[in-house]
Amino acid sequence: MRDATGPDAPVLAIRGATKRFAGRLILDGLDLALGAGEVYALLGPNGAGKTTTINLILGFLRADAGEVRVGGLDPATAPVAARAQAAYIPEQVALYPGLSGLENLRYLATLAALRLSRSEAGRLLDEAGLAGEAHGRPAAGYSKGMRQKVGIAVALARRARLLLLDEPTSGLDPGASADFARTVRAAASRGTAVLMATHDLYRLREMADRVGVLRAGRIAEEIDPRGLDAAALERLALARPAEEAP
């Protein structure tokens, strides 16, 4: 674990984070550190605590014990400042159905105190892989993949130090998934730290620098995915399934 306060402080530092729901232990002393430009994948079955970890980082939940720091800030006590350093794509991207993808992006950017021109917003949607003809259509008619792409554009617009991705390729077609992997690597090359919770073992190998296997509420193993094939990763992920978390 790196020093959380020095000049090389990690973008994300989690130390001994514990979280229970209704008496059930979901995270049990989780340790995790992530530096600028790193892509870290959290691997584990449903209920392993991947989304709970992201919720702690965003300050949506408060750890029962341990500490979480985003850029040195505690999201439990300074959630707004901590979240200002992060961008987030949830597993199910929900949009305002009456607005088009372009309008959703510009509106969500405005809420984050960003100013996006129409052309900038269009470029971000292109970058996220949303077809140009869909930019102006109401989001009510979007598929899950199209909504996901708008979510990606929202996150890209933030140019945040930390990118949190919860099952980011879920719902994307193979082409879009490959585009997304390239987008993530491009963000990392610009110095963005990326933490993603995923089941997508194939894309994980393309995107991640490190993989943490979440088991029994802590990182059971941390590995370099490039040396493993998908079958080996799958064996690791499913070795000891955790209990379901809320």
């Binding site: 987030y88 929900a94 949009l95 969500l108 929202v154 996150a155 949190l164």
Partner: peptide, 14 residues
């Protein structure tokens, strides 16, 4: 709808 999660997670201050 889930839009609050997307907004708060992307820098919208409450």
């Amino acid at each position: 709808r889930g839009t609050l999660r997307l907004a708060l997670g992307n820098g919208a201050a409450p």
